[in-house]
């Protein structure tokens, strides 16, 4: 039986879809059978981030409404010739009420019989789309960025997840800028853990390669030269139980630091 994991955040634009695409692709790279489910009905995006947008025939609503079997609707990612990475796209022309919680539970139950990992990409917000997305999940990952708005929403989502029976969600801190943290102008990993009081499963640095890989529709986790890709590879391994230390995000010492040390002004 596979694991059903929802990737959520509350706030939009913090990187849920990018995270889902990279973790899913990363897990497939390690040899697992993976299916990504886009539940953002009406605002379909996981397909373009994965570069699979031209191959969609059926979508999640076709499956939950019983019109086609899920195996017919799944898009196989050709980067993995044995078909171990799959996408179930969201419907683009319907709204969130086209699927209900019972249908999502049934879908997740079916998918976990065949796949090692079922990753649910959750829409932003706390309304029906969120409730649907978490309905069939047994684990949750909360994505946040080091901003007050994203952290506040993450805190609320953690509360709602726990109220919905999803205990101990794990945190991904996305778009961290180590130089700003060092300056004291961005909250650090410790600051965020302190506030949210949940376990961190990974920290992804702000990285231009994410923009480039999204432009191309090739998840950064496949790019050996991408720092963010390395962070996602680490997260992927942690999800499979490996003990991988957090990446070293230290910025090299600037001139000011050196001068400060010489004058003994460091505190």
């Amino acid at each position: 039986m596979g694991e059903v994991m929802v990737i959520t955040s509350g706030k939009g634009g913090v990187g849920k879809t990018t995270t889902t695409a990279n973790i899913g692709t990363g897990l497939a790279s390690l040899g697992y059978k993976v299916v990504l489910v886009d539940t953002d009905i009406g605002l379909r995006n996981l397909d373009v981030v994965m570069g699979l947008e031209n191959r969609i025939v059926y979508d999640i609503v076709d499956v939950t409404s019983g019109q086609v079997s899920y195996s017919k609707a799944l898009i196989k990612d050709k980067r993995f010739p044995d078909g171990r990475l799959n996408l179930l796209p969201a419907a683009q022309t319907k709204d969130k009420t086209a699927v209900n919680q019972a249908q999502m539970q049934k879908l997740c139950e079916d998918l976990r019989k065949e796949f090692d990992f079922v990753l649910i990409d959750c829409p932003a917000g706390i309304e029906q789309g969120f409730k649907n997305a978490i309905a069939g999940a047994e684990k949750a990952i909360v994505v946040t960025t080091p901003e007050v708005s994203a952290i506040r929403d993450a805190d609320r989502i953690i509360g709602l997840l726990e109220a919905g029976g999803l205990r101990n969600p794990r945190l991904i801190i996305n778009r961290l800028r180590p130089a700003m943290v060092k300056q004291g102008d961005m909250m650090s990993i410790e600051d965020m853990v302190d506030i949210l009081a949940i376990d961190v499963i990974g920290v992804v640095p702000e990285d231009d390669t994410i923009v480039i890989s999204t432009n191309k529709g090739e998840p950064a986790v496949l790019d050996d030269n991408s720092r963010a890709g390395q962070a996602y590879r680490n997260i992927t391994r942690r999800l499979t139980g490996a003990d991988v230390p957090l990446m070293n995000l230290e910025v090299s010492e600037g001139l000011f630091d050196k001068v400060r040390k010489i004058f003994g002004m460091g505190r």
């Binding site: 901003e147 007050v148 952290i151 506040r152 805190d155 609320r156 509360g159 943290v181 300056q183 004291g184 102008d185 961005m186 909250m187 650090s188 600051d191 506030i195 000011f256 001068v259 400060r260 004058f263 002004m265 460091g266 505190r267």
Partner: peptide, 27 residues
């Protein structure tokens, strides 16, 4: 001022303090 790191006026400390207050209420 130029070289100090842990200035309490650092914007991250402001962010933390504001979050702490707002979260008490949210929670």
């Amino acid at each position: 001022r130029m070289f100090s790191r842990e200035n309490s006026n650092n914007s991250k400390n402001i962010a933390k303090e504001r979050l702490r207050l707002v979260l008490v209420h949210d929670r």
